[in-house]
Write a protein that binds this DNA or RNA. Sequence first.
DNA 1: GCTTGCGGTGGAGTGAACTCCAGCGCCTAG
DNA 2: CTAGGCGCTGGAGTTCACTCCACCGCAAGC
Lengths: 145, 145
Amino acid sequence: MNATATALGIREVSELTGLTLDTLRWYEREGLIPLVKRSSDGRRRYGPAAVRFVRLVQALRRTGMPIAEIRHFVMLGPGTPEHSAQRLRILQEQEVRLHRRRAELDEDLRVMRHKMADFRDLMAHGRTCEDDDLPDDCGGPPPER
Amino acid sequence: MNATATALGIREVSELTGLTLDTLRWYEREGLIPLVKRSSDGRRRYGPAAVRFVRLVQALRRTGMPIAEIRHFVMLGPGTPEHSAQRLRILQEQEVRLHRRRAELDEDLRVMRHKMADFRDLMAHGRTCEDDDLPDDCGGPPPER
DNA sequence: GCTTGCGGTGGAGTGAACTCCAGCGCCTAG
DNA sequence: CTAGGCGCTGGAGTTCACTCCACCGCAAGC
């Protein structure tokens, strides 16, 4: 029942999330992380809710939401039901973006695997680079065009 | 059966990949895309191999490889078997990074879904879990109301 | 006491990746 | 012929998200 017992210092949150101390402080200044309390001597204390909030912000950032939008999301606050509905909508949109990003990632994986197969082939046999029928060369230092 | 038939202009490549005209030109200047030919009047022509190369570069970028590293990769060229081996190694490392990123994405999805559930709950009942009206702690026993 | 370490603040600085632009040429349509 | 459209170039400018810094205070250890 004790807040102090479960509250973390900024360093701990940093280690927990991988965000740097500077970034955590900067996010807070930018209004991305409310809920952070201060100890008597002015140091930040992150309770469970604050830590969860940091993680949410991190999730939004990593899925490509810009700072300004996150701020907007945060500013809506826990106020009215409409605000909650709007926040929910924003998260849903972000989830869509996340799925798109994952699809991209899968496509990128496909492309990279294809290229890797090319290299294996190239190393096994002396086959030309990668083209099926082109007079193109494949990469390499600019031979002075 | 000729390059002209299958070669694309910069605009087409732009539309195909989603990269802007400026970005394509800039990538080329930075040495990320060799293989691009020029038509008689100096315009860029992207043959199939060049287009594939653009896609590869895009895959590397999207999976977080910085420009400088991509350039290094490209500069290795199709030369010796060791170079091919090194290129292959780089791609393998990038594949690892891609998988890590995807794991992050999945974690982010989990976090966002959790938060969305909170909002739905908040809208259904008046129960708030994550916001600043709470003294702290919401991980423990649900506050009956 | 002093010093060491962690943390806080405001503001300046950085690096990466584009993005924009002025001025030019080529080609085609009218 | 002129006008419009696309593309080229080199270089400057912008954006974003941090990151660094100097300087301050508190608290503990020696």
